[in-house]
Design a protein around this nucleic acid. Structure first.
Lengths: 351, 351
DNA sequence: ACGCCGGCCTGAAACGAATCAAAACTGCGC
DNA sequence: GCGCAGTTTTGATTCGTTTCAGGCCGGCGT
């Protein structure tokens, strides 16, 4: 056989075998250099490394995974990449995963159940090591099936509702309670809740907490304004409706289910020739404490969620499940963080 | 051989072979059902599908890729997930990729060159079908190596600088020119540019365009204020310095290298008891036209980049390269979009 | 009846890396 | 010189899928 064939043709893949041949060793030795370098004598290893360098060899992950039966990446299916809260969670997850030699791949379901399923399929076929999901629809059955196939899931920003999944979330009921109690303490008595559809779990819980807080004060009334989305535009529309009422019928405090809504409301309130003073006429508080909250013209009070920490914790919970695998499975755990009230100018009514 | 073994043990993987056995067909037939269903007779196909269903079989992507030598996903390494511009590009890419049966996996380099490299390694090992990269450091050599290994790259928001890569970007020089010309038309004569480090290509180009526009008007002077970052905080700090000058020494127009800076500047200008009127005293324009631009208290003029379209185009360029593969490679193409001026209240000085 | 054709199905041979029992080598003491 | 223990290297086998040259079979024209 001709000893000389072109080493590097376009797209030509260099395999461990080529490296072995070049270095004049057996194929298993190359594998050892890659995976257990301490078991290979120094001169041999040097020779192999040189060959790897010369040929530009790169491990083929597909082959490696095929043999190992598992991958080294973790999938994170998030609801909305445009929401800073989720990307922060993602960053936390990446940090923690990196410490354990895992990579995080983000996939954006973008509020569309079919995309959520498509990505679940993709990650299942890729046999990812584990999955973080902030679920959109009811995917629990799907996720249980995944687990029987050896892929464990940790829920993000959603509790498991009795299903056996680990989860990391924030106590949204407490958050809603915190926000409204704060408004009341600032002297508000007619409070409005602006939110999205209550089919979104987070909205429902925050509203529930808000109601609870209002109920604790007999002289406080809570009005609920639900829009069908959680964007700046929705917030502005809701607030416009308030602005158009005669001053006596307006609330004196507004709690928005997230910061985007609050920013929209703030715009509506302050834009119109300063007709409504925030917080003087209406105190305003949002939820999530996104970066922009402190950057609005009247800095926005908000309820902070420990997003980065949540991401890190999610990975910890995942590893806990993964590493337990054998006979005795570890009980799923739910970590619930407490939200934190961040007071800024938009609710500072008392001197 | 005992016909009866437990079909579903924990983590037990079901392979095409199990399916074949269950359906009583050969293994190649199952593969045909999966990949070329029209070549399989109806009753056989039904039997195989039933077996797949019963056993809960899921294709092992690793094995498939190993054989095919290429994957079905595209990696997108982005500079900063928190910048809405990039996530919008990502959404465009996902949309277009989906049409061709490809998935997009996002990886966040987060301004850190080592993370950028780590993800390049990961995607190379995964033999992704292609790569979108908004490059941080100088990764061109790395990317050329990738191409010799059969992975093509399309640059996003960065031109190729003479290197043979396709790219999709926006003419930042034109954008800078557009912004400053607009300020001049609105009557501004003393203009300040607030930007990040000029080592960031986008900043340098926008500044260059701004300078060009100023030079076209002899009575206009341009002052350059560079901070070492592009966040809201940096913008506020830069504007604070302006606010502290005596009114006569302040610029009457400010162009910020991105919208985050502009939001910070706006906050600084308007927060201090309305001492500075926007646009009356100082007209303000940003860059990127992120969602928030229209939601600030004085809606922000900006330079719009067609982010979603850019993502779609990036995938098109990628496919063009991928599909050409054989003997005659397709010349890399650079698509440069023209930025668009979006005028809002923050620069409307003329009645 | 014969040959031939198509449609359907089969099964062996890849793909690239990991593994591990076994082989080869090393140095050492006797 | 020989055996022994330890170290280093070997190479056949495995993973799950795709591919493809062939095999089987029933029907058709002659």
């Amino acid at each position: 056989m001709s000893a000389c064939h072109n080493v590097r043709m376009a797209g030509g893949q260099v395999s461990i075998k080529d490296v072995a041949e070049r270095a004049g060793v057996a194929l298993g030795t190359v594998s050892n250099v890659l995976n257990r370098p301490e078991k290979v004598a120094e001169p041999t290893r040097a020779r192999v490394l040189a060959a790897i360098e010369q040929l530009g060899f790169v491990r083929n992950d597909a082959a490696r995974q095929l043999k190992a039966g598992k991958s080294t990446s973790v999938g994170f299916i998030l609801l909305d990449v445009r929401n800073p809260f989720f990307t922060d969670v993602g960053r936390g997850a990446e940090q923690q995963a990196a410490k354990h030699g895992l990579s995080v791949l983000l996939a954006n379901s973008d509020d569309q159940p079919d995309r959520e399923h498509a990505y679940l399929d993709l990650f299942e076929q890729q046999r990812v090591r584990g999955l973080l999901v902030s679920p959109l629809g009811n995917v629990f059955d799907r996720l249980e099936r995944l687990r029987t196939h050896g892929i464990v899931t940790v829920l993000v920003d959603r509790v498991a509702d009795g299903r056996p999944f680990s989860s990391v979330s924030v106590d949204d009921v407490a958050g809603g309670h915190l926000a409204v109690t704060h408004l009341i303490e600032q002297g508000c008595r007619r409070i409005a809740f602006i939110g999205g559809p209550v089919t979104i779990r987070q909205v429902a819980d925050r509203l529930f907490g808000a109601n609870k807080a209002a109920a604790e004060h007999p002289d406080v009334e809570l009005e609920v304004l639900l829009k069908d989305g959680l964007t700046v535009q929705h917030g502005r529309a809701a607030a416009d409706a308030i602005v158009q009422r005669p001053p006596g019928r307006r609330p004196d405090g507004v709690f928005c289910a997230n910061d985007l809504l609050a920013v929209g409301a703030l715009q509506s309130f302050t834009m119109l020739n300063g007709r409504i003073d925030v917080p003087g006429d209406i105190a305003l508080i949002g939820y999530d404490d996104i970066d922009f909250a402190s950057a609005t013209v009247v800095p926005l009070s908000s309820i902070r969620q420990p997003s980065v920490l949540m991401g890190r914790t999610a990975i910890d919970l995942l590893l806990e499940q993964i590493e337990a695998e054998p006979g005795n499975p570890v009980e799923p755990r739910s970590v619930v963080f407490q939200p934190e009230l961040i007071v800024r100018d938009s609710t500072r009514r008392l001197a």
